[in-house]
Amino acid sequence: MLEIGIIIGSTRPGRNGDRVAQWVQELAAEHACDAAEFELVDLKDYQLPLLDEPIPAGRAPGQQPHTRRWAERIGSYDAYIFVTPEYNTAPPASLGNAIDYLHSEWAGKPVAYVGYGIHGAVMAVQKLRAQAGVLRMADIGPQVALTLREDFVNSTDFRPRELHVAQVHGLVDELLAWARALGPLRVPALAVSQQAQ
């Protein structure tokens, strides 16, 4: 069974991301039936400081206890769904920082995006797509773009429109297809990570 991590990208007090991620998890689990397990990964639970590893993750795995804990969790998944807001046309610094901590753990895996913001976090997701390419992730096309005006009441009460249900289903279908297809590529990335440790 495929293991999918749904990463809550915002750590801001009063964030909307946890409710959005729970909604995605429920829809994905129901749609995929027994084909995959979907787990929430909340960056707040990891409290990663600003990147504090002396050697970049592309050259050597991190040595800090918080890095190792984060690497073990992320390395265990076959694919990811990033749930991200948009701040000043970009994803939150917490998400970018968490991504930068690792390298081989991301490689050979597909990633999908659910964004929320004034314009559905479209620009934030574009920046995440560029980052995914550098990390050798498979960046799938479908994106769920939730707008604060149409999918939230007073920008905080999450009430997604019905049309997004089909979008999440389509996103899950493509993500799982890519996760199966990329299975052979994930083995070398995992082996490299284990050898370096």
Rank of each mutant, 00 (worst) to 15 (best):
G115W: 01
W178I: 01
E150F: 08
E53T: 05
R180T: 10
K44I: 09
I4A: 09
Q197Y: 04
I8E: 00
R19W: 03
Q47P: 03
V122S: 10
L128F: 02
R68A: 06
P65E: 09
G96R: 09
L182V: 00
D157W: 07
C33K: 10
T84V: 09
N16T: 06
L128A: 05
G17Q: 00
G96K: 15
L176R: 06
W70G: 15
E30D: 11
P160A: 13
L163C: 13
G9D: 01
Q22Y: 01
S76M: 10
E26R: 10
K44C: 13
H31Q: 08
A132Q: 05
S94C: 03
V122I: 12
E3I: 00
Q197E: 13
R69G: 06
G9L: 00
A166L: 12
A71R: 14
V20G: 04
E150G: 08
S76T: 08
P110N: 03
A32P: 10
V144P: 04
A98G: 05
E39M: 06
T156N: 00
E3H: 13
I81F: 02
G75Y: 00
I6Q: 05
R186E: 07
S76D: 12
Y116H: 09
A145L: 07
A107S: 15
G115A: 06
S10R: 08
P160I: 07
D52H: 07
H66D: 13
L175A: 12
A21H: 01
I99K: 00
A28F: 04
A191E: 15
V114Q: 03
A28N: 09
V187F: 08
V192Q: 08
D18H: 03
E174A: 05
G17T: 01
G9F: 01
L146H: 01
P13E: 08
T156K: 05
H119A: 14
H169R: 11
W178N: 05
H103Y: 15
Y101E: 12
R186H: 04
A191L: 13
P92I: 11
I74Y: 02
I4C: 12
V122R: 03
Q197P: 04
Q25F: 03
L128E: 04
G170E: 05
S104T: 12
L40P: 03
G14M: 08
H119R: 12
Q131N: 14
G62K: 02
L40D: 05
R161H: 02
A177W: 13
G141D: 15
R149A: 13
K109Q: 11
A71G: 15
Q167I: 02
K44H: 09
G58I: 14
I6H: 04
V24Y: 04
G120L: 10
I55P: 05
Q126K: 12
F82V: 08
G62S: 04
V20W: 01
N88V: 14
N16S: 11
T84N: 07
I99W: 06
Y101T: 06
I81T: 02
R129C: 11
V41C: 05
D52C: 11
A189L: 01
V24K: 03
G170H: 06
